[in-house]
Design a protein around this nucleic acid. Structure first.
Lengths: 207, 207
DNA sequence: GTTTACAAACCAAGCGCTTGCTTGGTATTG
DNA sequence: CAATACCAAGCAAGCGCTTGGTTTGTAAAC
């Protein structure tokens, strides 16, 4: 299953919006604006202008501004959970599964869904209490994918630290790449993946 | 040099505000509010109320709200640069210097200056262009401390990845602890430091 | 194949409120 | 007696969101 197959399967299930639809385009622009200026600094007038409508018209699609933020986050987690699951399934060994997860998360942070992922990392404080609870629920599913692989590695003595600590350190390390990594800087995402795996003392995959 | 000695030396040099002064207390409360609610969601009325004055009176101490944010960040970097320098100076081997840096950064993120450090990580987008340039200048000095140690380790073959990549991954990983680490969770900062160093494949320091 | 019906998508205008900041004047302090 | 720190009041601008009405797309009815 490649990126597009997964995406369209989720669209068919009404789990994420079609990027071609009005709602999908709005969420895409919202993610970009929220990342660039922050949620609070982005006005409903900014959002409306980005898709070429009047600010009041936004509220036919979403009841509140916060609902837009929530939708960006929820759909992003759903998509990425599916992408990570596919990455894990495609790899053979636990070590390769971890490498695939790192590669996939770097991809989602710095590639297609990068804008929305940055929002997920930096704007969770702007969510209401109830929205936050829902997003955290979805995140737990996502995190379990990682923990399963890390615990298997730990069991085989290939990991020198606690899985849950490792995962949290990786979350921070990989999320942070959004602030400095630029694909045109002579460092590919494959290079970066390799460095991360090397840094963890897991030697390169032997064919 | 311990924490208090370093702090008071910086106060004497007018590099940071005395926490007992009106300005110092305001900056401390501002850091707390900015971390908890975000810069944009914190109003000047919130800030004023936190130190028990009227909102208008704030502007006798700072010309704009953004100047308060800048001051929080600048003073925090200054203090932490001095703390890191002391940590490096106190350690003997390069490996111990790295461990000392990790420990000190974890301390600054999760201890005394934690509120301000979180602001530094999450609120840099709210800085004006010029303030940001100045803060980045100060940060470069801070970062060089890390790079010097990491490059020495790399030279001795104790590091499997590029120093600048390692530092950026560490920045993310350690900053991120602010979102999940709680001192009462059965994991001390020393434990955490150990896990980080172990995760990097650097074996424990032998006495 | 035109008409009718109707909902969804949108606009123009603006309301009520909060925001950062200003102003003119009054305590407080050395 | 000057400088510093503060208060009480409020202004102009920008905010999220509402309202009442118009356009647009779609599909059945004739």
């Amino acid at each position: 299953m490649n990126y597009h197959a997964i995406l369209h399967s989720l669209i068919a299930d009404n789990q994420v919006s079609d990027p071609a639809s009005a709602r999908g385009r709005l969420l895409h622009e919202a993610a970009r604006l929220f990342r660039d200026k922050g949620y609070e600094r982005t006005t409903v007038r900014d959002l409306a202008a980005a898709v070429g409508i009047q600010s009041g018209s936004l509220f036919h699609h979403f009841r509140t501004k916060e609902e837009i933020l929530k939708a960006v986050m929820v759909e992003t987690i759903r998509l990425n959970t599916a992408l990570m699951q596919a990455a894990v399934d495609a790899a053979e060994t636990d070590r390769d599964k971890l490498q695939a997860l790192v590669r996939a998360e770097l991809e989602s942070i710095n590639g297609q869904t990068g804008e929305a992922m940055a929002v997920l990392v930096f704007e969770w404080r702007s969510l209401s209490e109830t929205s936050r609870a829902y997003v955290l629920e979805l995140r737990d599913i996502y995190e379990q994918l990682w923990l399963d692989v890390l615990e298997a590695l730990r069991k085989d003595g290939m990991l020198a630290a606690e899985p849950f600590v490792v995962r949290r350190m990786l979350t921070g390390a990989l999320s942070w790449t959004v602030t400095w990594y630029r694909p045109d800087g002579g460092l590919t995402l494959d290079d970066l993946t390799e460095q991360v795996v090397a840094m963890m003392g897991l030697t390169a995959s032997r064919p």
